[in-house]
Computed example of a mutant assay.
Amino acid sequence: MTGLISVAGAAVVDSLENPKRLLVAKRSAPPQFAGMWEFPGGKLEAGESFEDALHRELLEELGVTVRLGAEVEPQAGTGWPLNERAVMRVWFAELLDGAPRPLQDHDELRWVPLGNGDEASTLPWIPADLPIVQALLERVASGLLG
């Protein structure tokens, strides 16, 4: 699986120990994804680890610093497939500093509750993110964040 684009994503929750809410971001571009929701994050730069990319991307996109928790591990392989050329790995994260603002690539941020009703699963997600959302909700429901 060489030549794949690596993307780091964050499932920002209000608490790594007892998450009740998830921060989601609505894309403003490109046109095929505008208006859809996703996990904030972005592509790794040359020589950058997934964790370092997440810290950089969240500061650039949302103006926040975070503490990373456990990875939302993919069902198989080295990441969650986004398309035939890219895979994403996602970590739980908790805000350390800053108030999240849509600075780049997004026009809205929203905290959605995690729990009964699962508003998070009913949002119009970018299709590739849907399996990640389901895995995240299962992890939260089972208390397996650490």
Rank of each mutant, 00 (worst) to 15 (best):
W111P: 05
D129K: 02
D107M: 10
R110G: 02
N83V: 04
P131D: 13
G117K: 10
E108S: 12
L96V: 14
V90T: 12
R85Y: 07
P113G: 11
L130M: 12
V90M: 09
W91I: 00
L137C: 09
A99S: 11
A135E: 15
V87Y: 03
L95F: 14
P102G: 06
H106E: 01
N116A: 14
N116V: 07
L82N: 03
L109W: 10
V90P: 00
A120Q: 07
A93R: 04
A93I: 00
G115V: 08
W111D: 06
R101T: 08
A135D: 07
G117C: 06
R139T: 03
L96I: 08
L114M: 12
L96N: 02
R110A: 10
A99F: 04
W91S: 04
L103T: 01
D107W: 03
L103Y: 04
D129H: 13
E119F: 06
R101S: 08
R139I: 00
P131T: 10
A120T: 06
G117A: 09
N116Q: 12
P124D: 13
P127W: 10
S121N: 06
P124M: 09
T122M: 07
W91H: 13
A93H: 08
W125M: 10
P100E: 06
A120N: 07
M88P: 01
L137F: 01
W125H: 10
E94C: 02
L82R: 13
N116E: 14
R139S: 10
L130D: 00
G98M: 06
R139D: 15
P131F: 10
A93V: 05
L96Y: 06
A120F: 04
V87C: 00
Q134Y: 02
L82D: 10
Q104H: 12
R89K: 14
R89Q: 05
Q134V: 08
V140M: 03
L114K: 00
E138I: 12
V87S: 01
L95N: 07
L103C: 03
T122L: 11
L103S: 01
V90N: 02
P100Q: 03
I126M: 14
I132V: 15
L130Y: 05
M88A: 15
L136Y: 11
D107E: 14
N83C: 04
Q134R: 13
E138L: 13
D107N: 14
A93T: 01
A135Y: 09
E108A: 15
P127S: 09
I126T: 12
G98R: 09
P100F: 02
P102K: 12
Q134M: 02
D107I: 08
L95M: 10
L130G: 01
P131H: 12
Q134K: 10
A128Q: 06
E138A: 15
P113Y: 11
A128T: 05
M88I: 09
I126V: 15
L130K: 15
W91Y: 13
R139P: 01
D118A: 14
D118T: 02
P124S: 08
A86T: 04
L136N: 05
V140T: 05
W125E: 14
